[in-house]
Every structure is written in structure tokens, then in C-alpha cells.
């Protein structure tokens, strides 16, 4: 069953059209990768889906579980289960990581009409999740991402994801800034979330990440559209031949 369905999506930043008729379906239980050159609109897609200000949808639709996403506030989309692992995670001065995440968990639960998570339950889950991601628990008491290294920030993105248990995950360049060990830990964290009723969109520049997070489908994005789709072998082909022929075809 299709979980995320994007149809003929057009979006602009300022007056500049970035997405120009993007169509994509991601069924439940699957991991799809989007690859493409710089400027193809990959990050724009992640921001349009999550509802960032300044990204204006001019045509087309996007639904999650058959319900329109684009008319909703970012927090409503999050409560429906949409999660973005940011390419550049933000620093939140003065707010301890645990406080931030607990606030988010409870806000989502409230939006869904569920009871708040109890403090002991939250802490127990946080400890187990931190251990799995090799995050020092004391780091979670510090202001979120303030003074964290690039790798630590990416691990915190995966930590938040595991705590929030979203239904649909968008990973935007999650491999950037990671050394091999960190990449393995992060990938294990992502793979642990794979399940039949969850789906993922993995946005990446390089094939390297896809050795760790194995996609069911690979899409090539260029000039704001999906220009080719295939199985995992497509990623290897791109790694070998580059994006040139797709860029030329899209131009």
C-alpha cells in the first residue's frame, strides 16, 4: 500500500521554480533513495514535504496515508508521523536535548489524542536508545546540538527519530560529515527502524550510504523531477558513470 504519494509537485523558493513536476510513490515497508547532482532540488523536496516557510507549492499534491500533507502546519505533519533528519541539524541553545525531545514526544502524543509519556518510561527508552547509538547519556543533558561535532549532531537526529517513532522518515544527506564508524552506527540505527508499516526516503549524494541502508528502489532527480528509477543497481551505475547523462537529458 502506498504510504507517501507525490504527484506532479511544483514548488518555488522566492520566484524561482525548483520542483518542476515531481511524481513519486513510496509504499509502506520500503526504503527509496533519491540521488542527484547538486541543485537538483533534493533538499527542497524534503522542506516542501515538511512544510518549511518560504517554500511555496504552486501545483501538484502530496499525501501521507492518503491524506493531504501540504495544507497542514509542520507540527501537524510531524504528529501524523513525518520525520526529517536534517542535513544541517540546528543548535537549540539553553534547551537540554532530553527536554526538547520529551516536549516533542508529548506534543505529538497530545496532537494524536494520546496520553503523555511518563517520566520513567521516557528515561528508560532514552537510556536504551542512547546506548544503542553509542551516545553518552550525559550529552543528552546538554543543550541540544550546541557544541556537538557534525557526527554527534547526526547521531542526535537518529536518536530523536528513534524516540519519536515516526511512520515516514526522510533522511537528508545523513551521511555527510560522518566517518566510517559513525556511518555504521547511524545506519544500524536507521535499519533498526525498518518495519512493514514504516517507509523511508533516503536523500543522498553518494552511493556509499546505500551500502549500509539498502534501498528497495533508487530514483534519480535532476532539475526538479525524477528522471530515472530502478533497483539498487542504479546507485552503482551512478557511482560509476556520474549524473551527466541525466543532467543533459533533463536540461
Amino acid at each position: 500500500m502506498t504510504m507517501l504519494s507525490i504527484n506532479n509537485l511544483h514548488a518555488s523558493v522566492g520566484d524561482k521554480p525548483i520542483l518542476k513536476g515531481l511524481t513519486l510513490d513510496v509504499p509502506a515497508g520500503e526504503v527509496h533513495a533519491i540521488m542527484g547532482p547538486n541543485g537538483a532540488g533534493k533538499s527542497t523536496l524534503s522542506y516542501v514535504l515538511t512544510g518549511r516557510d518560504g517554500y511555496e507549492v504552486t501545483d501538484g499534491s502530496a499525501t501521507l496515508d492518503g491524506v493531504d500533507l501540504l495544507g497542514q502546519a509542520p507540527e501537524a505533519r510531524a504528529a501524523r508521523g513525518l520525520y526529517l533528519s536534517f542535513q544541517y541539524p540546528l543548535e537549540i541553545p539553553g534547551v537540554p536535548a532530553l527536554t526538547f525531545i520529551r516536549t516533542a514526544v508529548n506534543a505529538q502524543r497530545k496532537a494524536r489524542g494520546e496520553a503523555e509519556i511518563s517520566a520513567p518510561e521516557f528515561l528508560k527508552k532514552a537510556r536504551a536508545t542512547a546506548a544503542a547509538l553509542k551516545i553518552d547519556f550525559d550529552m543528552l543533558k546538554r543543550a541540544l546540538n550546541v557544541g556537538f561535532s557534525g557526527g554527534e549532531k547526526k547521531r542526535m537526529e537518529i536518536f530523536q527519530m528513534a524516540m519519536l517513532e515516526p511512520r515516514f522518515l526522510i533522511l537528508d544527506e545523513t551521511d555527510s560529515g560522518l566517518d566510517i564508524d559513525a556511518l555504521r552506527i547511524v545506519s544500524e540505527g536507521v535499519n533498526a527502524m525498518r518495519s512493514p508499516d514504516r517507509a523511508m526516503l533516503v536523500i543522498t549524494h553518494y552511493q556509499r550510504l546505500l551500502d549500509y541502508i539498502k534501498p528497495d528502489r533508487v530514483h534519480v532527480m535532476s532539475a526538479g523531477r525524477i528522471v530515472a528509477s530502478g533497483g539498487p543497481e542504479l546507485a552503482h551505475e551512478l557511482e560509476k558513470d556520474g549524473y551527466d547523462k541525466y543532467v543533459r537529458a533533463a536540461a
Binding site: G51, A73, E75, A78, A104
Partner: peptide
């Protein structure tokens, strides 16, 4: 604004 969007993406209302 970026930090605000980040928090909202995590589900925290504006």
C-alpha cells in the same frame, strides 16, 4: 526562524 522550524518539524506547535 530555522530553530523554530526545527522544533515544529519535531511536532512542537509554533
Amino acid at each position: 526562524e530555522n530553530a523554530l522550524f526545527y522544533a515544529r518539524q519535531r511536532g512542537i506547535p509554533l
